[in-house]
Design a binder for these strands. Structure first.
Length: 196
DNA sequence: AAGTGGATTAACT
DNA sequence: GTTAATCCACTTT
């Protein structure tokens, strides 16, 4: 499938994680397969700051097979399996700084028909308004683990500037002690596709 | 064996 | 629309 999206350069990811998490809002997440191109505009992200963040897999620099990629250079794909779902993250921070940004929601952009085929839902609104939902709709899976977003079949391209960015507590990390109140979640105000 | 966290469905206001 | 219960598969101990 021919692709008209231009990946953002490697340098785009060389920012502090909390800054990058905001810069990613409005960008387009694209997955290219032989059959189709599907893409969505990122509308919700969460930052995970490895060493100091109890909610992160890499808390206190815990290095396992799963978190290994977070210690690598920024701009790589970190996918991990959660029950039946797969979640996508953008590796952030310099080498040996295990930080990542979870993409929690996107707004369907191109290839909506294909996405609906992968994930039949009555309302488009429910197609990609959650981290596990968007991966299924876009066809992202564990096979994408470790790929660079700037040079592969899963890319992040420049999008449009989001109107208003809001910041708040993260979701789904209730048992992470004090870390559960860190305001590391960013989303586009009033966008119907944010997970909540 | 234990821990994990989103999606879906059901029950409720 | 909001909350509650249940499902699920993989990772780490």
């Amino acid at each position: 499938m021919t692709n008209s999206f231009t990946p953002l350069p490697k340098e785009f990811y060389e920012e502090p994680t909390l800054t990058l998490a905001q810069k990613l809002l409005g960008c387009v997440l694209v997955k290219i397969t032989d059959e189709s191109i599907t893409s969505g505009v990122i509308v919700e992200t969460e930052a995970y700051l490895g060493a100091i963040d109890r909610a992160a897999h890499s808390f206190q620099n815990r290095r396992t097979k799963r978190t290994e990629i977070m210690f690598s250079e920024p701009g790589l794909v970190y996918t991990y399996q959660m029950h039946t779902h797969c979640l996508v993250n953008v590796v952030s921070g310099p080498i040996n700084t295990p930080e990542a940004i979870l993409i929690r929601a996107v707004e369907p952009y191109t290839g909506i028909h294909t996405m609906l085929k992968r994930r039949p839902v009555p309302l488009i609104k429910n197609l990609t308004n959650g981290p596990g939902k968007l991966t299924k709709a876009l066809g992202i899976g564990m096979e994408d683990y470790g790929k660079p977003f700037y040079h592969s079949n899963i890319i992040i391209a420049k999008g449009k500037e989001p109107k208003t960015i809001v910041r708040g507590k993260r979701i789904g990390i209730g048992n992470s002690g004090e870390a559960k109140d860190y305001p590391y979640r960013f989303w586009v105000l009033d966008n119907p596709f944010v997970s909540r």
